[in-house]
Design a protein around this nucleic acid. Structure first.
Lengths: 351, 351
DNA sequence: CTGAAAGCGCTTACAG
DNA sequence: CTGAAAGCGCTTACAG
């Protein structure tokens, strides 16, 4: 392996100072620094002759920047299961990074001593290799995010994240608006008791969808059901549960995910009922899986690609203007997909 | 944004030298360097108290390594079209990188002045940011690869690459063996005239598949047809072409890709013939697209994941042992998929 | 228009 | 067992 040439080698060969070489390779000539065309040509010749290539680490150390954006995910980034989940985000991130002239660093080596993926590993912030980072994943560690924000490190979360005692930048899907829209579609069909069914865990997107439900009731002035939200694990959805809902007069639901929706569907079928004839269901987001017996869901899709590209845009804005550290956020519109799973409630059809 | 603490700040607070702090955070204690347990504890306390995090750029500059592996692709890495193509490679690369404790740098910002993706941009080798790189893509620039190899930069190509005047490391699929296997399967059914149909372009994998065809003939001792390889653009495959093949006594083909195979199928159908009753076809690799009217191809699949992980393994071996710069290569076995597109040739069925 | 020099924050012989 | 210091290869005021 031959030794690499240094900038000073180029300077010596071209008979100029290192400052001049630096100015030439960084296209500073004509800006604050002046170099005569002949001198510049000598520098380029010397570079070509030696086959000189700049050392990015040294450049980074000296300038404090390296035009690298990190991608940190709280779940493995390229697993089989999450394949279709992460991909559209990455697509948007890559597109925008390329457009902005940044490379992407995938933080793959991030499991700590306990086997957990985390940003701080033995007090080392792994992300510092990159000028700024895009963060993704459902199982984030809020305390880490707070610490990261406090440390002044530039990052943007893909997906709304509520961090106690901190305000962070994020790009989110407008779950609230999209969910409200689905509920209103049911209202338009004559439904009056529509509830939200979700898993029993507090996450921001569930909060947002719940808010969407409430907003729809508020806007239409319909009375909110006594139990507007059903928090339940998928495996606990049974025909009895569904019979209970029907007894309460519920005629339709918006549902967090496809597993829950499929479970509801199965229970309805077990009772001899069908969707949307006897009950309406709409899905709040993209299905996670391909199902054999999946109906054509009425649902909305999450603008993943746009969430990714906007995250990069926020990050680059922040890096270009380090003075303004105020957090930024955006709610991107979801797309409603009109399927075959909502219709007028059965009571109305009897009229 | 508060200023970050430096290693020297930790040293001052712990009342030790920077060398000691460096030894502690790099786990050198107990190896060549000795630090008393009390001193070490003081260092860790100081680190915790300041919230010190190491600066990777400085570390890289000083040590010459950064435990980052690059991924360079000659096509955009996350486009819609190549989604399913690149993904399995990335999966294997990520798995192995994680296992080996390396992060991955995706070189996204690599288009030169002419809009072409290239490693050398204005005489700068973009890859030098990473300790070593995995290269992928069909449209590689051999001259660049030669230059890269000559420069001593550690890299591994995913897919066999023949570079004039250079010998590079790669991980390949055993196209030759798998193609020979398909041809022999046809021989076993009674075929004697099986040809290879491919696009009219020279690429390594076509060379390998062709070799597979020849190998099968050689092993069985059957005479090679006068025109054993048909090089033809997809759109030029017509019923006339196929009628010609049949007239030559060809009863089956192994085919480069699914587009060609589908075109053959259409032409056969247009002649009132069907597969595999009248003609056998086997596919040499994974289909690129999902087709509406695709038969259940007899084919082989390319071990993409393994190709990716082996590339990382080669790279890490090279980095761990910089003295041995000899190129490494491996041919990984493909998996034969028994479909419904080969059968005994029609002549035999009449007996 | 150009150069000498400090500094970025680490690692690593080397000296003691 | 620990410290002083050179060096990694750049950038960037600053001086002229």
């Amino acid at each position: 392996m031959k030794t690499r040439y240094r900038l000073s080698d180029v300077a010596r060969l071209a008979e100029v100072s290192t400052a001049t070489v630096s100015a030439v390779i960084n296209r500073q000539v004509g800006r604050n620094i002046r170099v005569s065309p002949e001198t510049e040509q000598r520098v380029w010749d010397a570079i070509a002759r030696l086959g000189y290539v700049v050392n990015p680490a040294a450049r980074t150390l000296a300038s404090g920047k390296n035009r690298i954006l990190g991608i940190f995910t709280y779940e493995p980034i390229f697993p089989f299961q999450n394949h279709d989940y992460f991909y559209p985000f990455l697509l948007g991130i890559e597109e925008e990074a390329e457009a902005q002239g940044y490379n992407l660093l995938l933080f793959t080596h991030v499991t700590d001593a306990h086997g957990k993926r985390s940003i701080y590993n033995e007090d080392t912030n792994l992300l510092y290799t990159a000028d700024g980072s895009v963060l993704l994943g459902l199982n984030e560690d809020k305390e880490e995010l707070r610490r990261l924000q406090e440390g002044g490190y530039p990052f943007v979360y893909v997906g709304r994240r509520d961090v106690p005692d901190a305000s962070i930048s994020f790009t989110a899907a407008d779950y609230t608006g999209a969910t409200a829209r689905l509920v209103e579609m049911m209202f338009d069909q004559g439904h009056r008791k529509v509830i939200y069914v979700c898993l029993p865990r507090w996450i921001e997107s569930n909060q947002d969808r719940e808010d969407g439900l409430f907003r729809a009731y508020l806007q239409r002035g319909f009375p909110l059901p006594a139990e507007p939200v059903l928090r339940i694990p998928t495996e606990q959805i049974t025909p009895e549960i569904v019979r209970d809902l029907l007894a309460q007069g519920v005629t339709g639901t918006v549902v967090e995910n496809d597993e829950l929706a499929q479970a509801l569907l199965s229970s309805l079928n077990a009772l001899g009922l069908s969707v949307p004839r006897d009950f309406s269901i709409a899905l709040c987001g993209n299905p996670h899986h391909a199902w054999d017996n999946s109906p054509d869901w009425t649902m909305f899709t999450i603008p993943r690609r746009e969430m990714g590209s906007h995250a990069v845009r926020f990050l680059v804005e922040r890096l270009n203007n380090p003075v303004d550290t105020s957090p930024r956020s955006i709610y991107l519109p979801c797309t409603i997909v009109s399927g075959q799973t909502i219709a007028a409630p059965p009571g109305l059809k009897n009229l």
